[in-house]
Write a protein that binds this DNA or RNA. Structure first.
Lengths: 150, 150
DNA sequence: TTTTTATTGAGATTCATTCGCTATAGTACT
DNA sequence: AGTACTATAGCGAATGAATCTCAATAAAAA
């Protein structure tokens, strides 16, 4: 399997863009993050390490990473986008707690069947899906129950 | 079944807020819109009808409508949120064309099974789910194929 | 090297959303 | 009805994420 850097370089060549140390440094940093991130967090993390990259460059690099399938937008909350790297990950869906915001990832097995069904029924060529399920995690659920009783 | 206005008034009472003509007018307008809307469109639509409501009031009313289950955020795109009213609708999911943006709504049958399974597996109390499937609609698919051949 | 031009960084700009403030008007209680 | 209390409306200012401008730089190709 190609490394994410390799994937990006291939993409750069294909699109006739330019390899720059900034873009590759940003990409490396993203793949060191376990879980979700946002632009500001990524920027600060680079800054702390003494890496000089402007926010503008991050904003300009992200659409490229997304376009070549290395990163995806997870959700828009708190007024800005949250992202995650996805290369090498099996596609997963999110189970999010409405109270504490905890996110569980889960695999799904039968959405592929659904995709096929949709393709047939509506004539679509399916590219991707996002499934987000919301509810209360065990802890918050218990807390809510106790509050309800009092 | 309660009217959406009734639902909202019950909510207002429960939360000890105040009934105001602005909020109820905004809500009525929302339920006259078939399909998705955004704040700006809603504001202009009211303005055209000669209804004087400020954008700030719309921004302040929407979270209430969402909280009482009358409206939901559909997606964040073009730099702002898009909403839809959901009361009285069966929950539907979206099949969106990545090229032209057309949105097909579809029912799903077995996500309820998935919800039950998740509830059992992770101990969550499921409240809702959003499933968005993306791809190319028949027309755009054909256009893409033709472009690819040339 | 030289040329070409994509990319960078910094700051300015845009624009959706929120905030601060004052006047108004629901609501509850005489 | 009248009064007190305070949530809400409207307006304009403020905020802040994202984008744009532009001069300087540095990839890539010749």
């Amino acid at each position: 399997m190609k490394s994410e850097l390799q994937v990006f370089q291939d993409y750069i060549r294909l699109r006739e863009l330019r390899r720059t140390p900034e873009r590759e440094r940003i990409l490396r940093e993203i793949f060191e993050i376990h879980g979700h991130f946002d632009v500001d967090g990524l920027y600060l993390q680079l800054k702390q390490k003494g890496v000089k990259v402007s926010k503008a460059s991050i904003y300009r690099a992200l659409p490229l990473f997304i376009d070549c399938g290395l990163v995806r937008e997870v959700e828009f909350s708190q007024g800005h986008w949250h992202y995650e790297h996805i290369y090498g990950h099996s596609h997963h869906n999110h189970l999010r707690c409405l109270s504490c915001g905890e996110i569980q990832e889960f695999e799904n097995l039968f959405l592929h069947c659904l995709e096929e069904q949709l393709a047939k029924e509506y004539g679509y060529r399916i590219k991707s899906h996002h499934l987000q399920v919301e509810g209360l995690c065990p802890a918050c659920r218990q807390r809510e129950d106790e509050a309800g009783r009092s």
